[in-house]
Design a protein around this nucleic acid. Structure first.
Lengths: 230, 230
DNA sequence: AATTTGTTACGACTATTGACGAAAAAAGGA
DNA sequence: TCCTTTTTTCGTCAATAGTCGTAACAAATT
């Protein structure tokens, strides 16, 4: 567990340090840990208005002591709750064969479906009113060869409101079936590199309220555009 | 490469944020990237004495803007050198089955052999004057089943002056042979949980100037002690 | 030994952080 | 709708960060 904790601490630290809006990133993580500002403030020994000031980006360049205290407090609170949140990421961090994941990223603000559609230069087969909080790009061929339905869970980033992007797809049925069997609930599934979409894939997306998008951007450009968001 | 860059940025950020001596951590990484204070200062658009002040921990809680500028500058410099340093970590980050690694950590200051010996409560079979800059704890049984000689290289952390700790060892010969075949050069090899050490293992350690240590601490206690350093 | 390169120590000063509390606003529940 | 809880806004101030330049020190090279 210590290794998982270290990796997650690094991840949060890095995200805050490199964020245009460090306070917003802190707020995102506090919400992921399901901690109120009050509880966090109490744990850190400061006033709740301090938390609010930081999260609203009143401080443009918070010192690392503050960042460390926030993260440490969040982890201590989660520990007192039996590692409720951290345990969700344990298997993600330790068991994924990262060759399957081409790229993965969390956005600091959710994207509306239409905005996301524009980013990936995609055509919508099934629309959704759900938002996109991040994405995972998956090499479908490698995933099929190495992953079972359970392992799809590990492909998730840190929120479920995200886009799963399957590359090297022929009809799109296998990815959608896997998503359904594993009971995953991404906001959007993007199918990349196929000519005709299997109608079963479309039906699954409709039944599960998952946006379905196809795109033929080159993978490199797709990554550039997805990373260029925000 | 972008994924590798992100993970490494997170790693450095996390290490600085959680370090008792953030300046020392920054210095460590600047040296790993083989960048002079002058070059870094020029890249950041500040005076070299600024770098020196930070690295000597004159600033107890540097703001994240500064941290970000340091890391960004180091990466840009490395990029201009053809990713000379970052490429060393590419395969480490993307290809390791992390189930094999029980724990791994970098120390912000090198430990002398005697000090390290005390930490692991070990008995020295072969001594060395080399220092220990970090450690990797490896599950030997899993490593044997899944790794070939080349993959041992991936088990390294960020410096070669480190300790490789093999757990669940029967005689110690296989780990030492693997270390030799892969031409690895750890400072110290720790063999854990064996009753008698194979004399070939001892000979290899002597020939390669690798300290050889045995310990019978429980794994949990071993990890606690190793993590408790500093 | 002299020179060059790299680094350190420190005084100084402006800008910003870190933190508080009070009042207002927003959110959630009965 | 009312009440409670949570969060936000903002003025304020002491402490510290961010940065400079200078002199000194240390290491490497000629």
């Amino acid at each position: 567990m210590d290794h998982v904790i270290d990796v997650l601490k690094d991840k949060i630290s890095g995200e805050v340090v490199f964020s245009e809006n460090p306070g917003k990133a802190l707020r995102k993580w506090r919400r992921i840990f399901e901690v109120s500002q009050r509880e966090l403030a109490d744990k850190m020994g400061v006033s709740p208005s301090v938390i609010s000031d930081y999260e609203s980006d009143r401080r443009k360049s918070p010192g690392i002591n503050f960042i460390r205290k926030v993260i440490t407090a969040l982890f201590e609170i989660d520990k007192s709750r039996g590692y409720k949140t951290i345990s969700k990421y344990r298997e993600l961090i330790s068991g994924v064969n990262l060759d399957v994941i081409i790229d993965m990223k969390e956005y600091s603000r959710p994207l509306r479906f239409e905005e996301f559609l524009d980013v990936v230069n995609g055509r919508a087969l099934v629309k959704t009113d759900r938002v996109v909080g991040g994405y995972t790009i998956i090499d479908s061929i490698k995933a099929i060869l190495t992953l079972n339905a359970y392992d799809f869970y590990k492909l998730y980033g840190y929120t479920s409101e995200r886009a799963l992007i399957f590359t090297k797809v022929t009809t799109g049925r296998s990815p959608m079936v896997a998503v359904r069997v594993a009971n995953l609930k991404p906001s959007v599934v993007v199918l990349h590199g196929l000519e005709r979409v299997d109608e079963i894939a479309v039906k699954i997306a409709e039944m599960d309220n998952v946006g379905l998008v196809v795109t033929n951007l080159r993978i490199e450009e797709l990554i550039d555009r997805l990373r260029g968001v925000e």
